[in-house]
């Protein structure tokens, strides 16, 4: 918010003039600075601290009007953040390549739920300076062991080699040794998840 304060100081400088003093942490930033109220702000030297006047609370306010339920409130509402992540309204086509989950996904004995950003929960974890690549499928519901068997079979068929997997039942995830994120995404989309 430093910038906000700076905008204010710019504002105060305009009103106080070149030589006027701007009080730090002034609570009366929005108050009108009339010549008599500027007295407290001007850099006048007094013979002693005791003889200097008290800084008076500045009473004069700028003239403004308060508009209740203004028509412009619609513009304000547009700026406020989302409460929850907005729901995706079904469309005819998605040019960006995003694929919506299908109804038939619920018919399998297992289920992959989308993340709250409506993406597939399939990730690549790279460790040991790129030497170890592990693809992770998260948010699995239902029969995790059957899902494990099926992706193992699918990856073996596609890549013509045995693919090592590890099932974490408690955290409901499956780790696959190697970078198979694109294959797994393809598989998940073909199942309708």
């Amino acid at each position: 918010m430093a910038t906000v304060l700076r905008t204010h100081s710019a504002f105060a400088r305009l009103l106080v003039g070149k030589n006027g003093r701007i009080l730090n942490n002034s609570l009366d930033l929005g108050a009108k600075l009339l010549p008599e109220s500027q007295l407290a702000l001007s850099s006048k030297h007094y013979s002693s601290y005791g003889k200097s006047p008290f800084v008076r609370k500045i009473k004069e306010q700028y003239n403004y009007e308060i508009e209740k339920n203004p028509p412009e409130w619609e513009y304000v509402k547009r700026l406020l953040p989302f409460t929850t992540i907005p729901k995706i309204i079904p469309k005819d086509s998605y040019p960006s390549g995003w694929v919506p989950p299908k109804e038939e996904a619920l018919n399998h004995p297992y289920f992959l739920s989308r993340t709250k950003n409506a993406e597939l929960p399939i990730y690549l974890k790279i460790t040991y300076r790129g030497m170890r690549k592990i693809s992770i499928i998260r948010k699995i519901e239902g029969d995790i062991w059957l899902l494990n068997d099926e992706i193992k079979q699918y990856l073996k068929q596609k890549n013509k080699r045995y693919v090592e997997t590890r099932v974490h039942e408690v955290a409901r995830l499956i780790e696959t040794k190697g970078d198979y994120v694109n294959d797994l995404r393809e598989w998940a989309l073909s199942k309708g998840f």
Binding site: P81, F82, T83, T84, I85, K116
Partner: peptide, 10 residues
């Protein structure tokens, strides 16, 4: 309601 809100918000 409260927990679902947090589970579905940023």
């Amino acid at each position: 309601e409260k927990l679902l809100y947090h589970l579905h918000s940023d």
